[in-house]
Amino acid sequence: MYCKFGGLINKDEVLATMFVQANTTIPVPTILDVIGESDEELFVLMSRVPGDPVHGVLNRMDAPSLALFESDLRDWLFQLRSLVPLPSTVVGGFLGTPSMQFRIAAWCPIGPYSTKEDLHEDLLRRTEDRSAVESVVKKSHGKPHMLCFTHGDLRHQNLLMQNGRLSGLVDWGSSGWFPEYWDYTGACYANKKYYPRWIEVFSRIFPQYRDELEVDRALWMQINPY
């Protein structure tokens, strides 16, 4: 079992984890007990999901193993995207609340936003030189993206593998309702140099969002460069 407490978990993460478990076949932690009322004093006990983080094996996979990993991941992501959005256009956390998005602001929640356009405008406001990216963002921000349920923090540490298969997806603290490209561009955040195979897999799953990735990378260089 694991526990999260001390401001490292909130009600959104608890309910989002339960929502995914109830509506998909994705293996996630089972919430066993929740103590406390405010987010600051929550103590959450959950089951351990078997497996080890994928970053330890991804670059060593042979072609058949990589194809199986990609197939499992594709299925999970499309299950998330098939979840019916809440009857709202609000962009943000699971309950229409502020959401922790580390690619935008480290340890400072963003949103919620009334519309996708409000999210995009906030991203532009955060840039150091808005004029440097305004011409680029038109490639993406003008498209009619639908809202999807997203994990929001697809990193190697949060995807687990056991016996050659994906075995779990953990840490739903950044999940919520965001534009359909959000999980793809987030998965590519700052990983191209160190994990090219990771980028290749996600790009095969989501080939339609190349413009969106170009735009988000331009924004990241202005908002949160490293």
Rank of each mutant, 00 (worst) to 15 (best):
M1G: 10
K4T: 00
L8S: 12
L8P: 10
I9D: 02
N10R: 09
K11Q: 09
E13R: 00
E13L: 07
E13S: 06
V14L: 06
A16C: 03
F19S: 03
V20L: 05
Q21T: 05
A22K: 01
A22S: 03
T24L: 05
T24E: 15
I26P: 10
P27W: 15
P27C: 08
I31M: 03
L32H: 13
S38C: 14
E40A: 12
E40H: 10
E41K: 08
E41H: 11
E41A: 03
F43W: 15
L45W: 09
R48N: 06
D52L: 11
P53H: 09
V54I: 10
H55K: 03
G56I: 07
V57H: 07
L58Y: 15
N59A: 07
R60Y: 15
R60W: 14
M61K: 13
D62N: 15
P64G: 01
S65D: 04
A67G: 03
A67Y: 11
A67M: 12
D72E: 03
W76D: 04
L80C: 05
S82W: 06
V90T: 03
G92W: 00
G93T: 02
G96D: 03
G96H: 04
G96N: 06
T97R: 13
M100W: 13
Q101W: 06
R103M: 09
R103D: 09
W107K: 13
I110H: 00
G111C: 02
P112H: 05
T115E: 10
E117A: 04
E117W: 14
H120R: 12
E121I: 05
L124Y: 01
T127H: 12
R130I: 09
R130A: 12
S131K: 04
V133E: 00
E134S: 02
H141L: 09
P144L: 08
H145M: 11
M146Y: 06
M146W: 08
L147Y: 12
F149A: 14
T150C: 14
H151Q: 11
G152A: 11
L154N: 03
H156V: 05
H156D: 14
H156G: 13
Q157T: 07
Q157A: 14
N158K: 09
L159M: 14
L160D: 10
M161F: 14
Q162N: 02
N163S: 10
G164M: 13
R165T: 08
R165L: 11
L166K: 06
L166M: 09
L166H: 09
L166R: 05
S167Y: 13
L169P: 00
D171E: 11
W172L: 05
G173T: 00
S175I: 02
G176R: 01
W177K: 01
W177E: 00
W177N: 05
E180K: 01
T185N: 07
T185M: 13
T185F: 14
G186D: 07
G186C: 04
A187G: 03
A190R: 11
A190S: 09
K193W: 15
Y194H: 14
Y195R: 15
Y195K: 15
P196G: 00
R197N: 12
R197M: 11
E200A: 02
S203L: 11
S203R: 03
R204C: 04
Q208N: 14
D211E: 12
E212G: 14
L213Y: 12
L213H: 14
V215K: 05
R217V: 15
I223D: 10
N224L: 07
P225C: 11
Y226W: 10
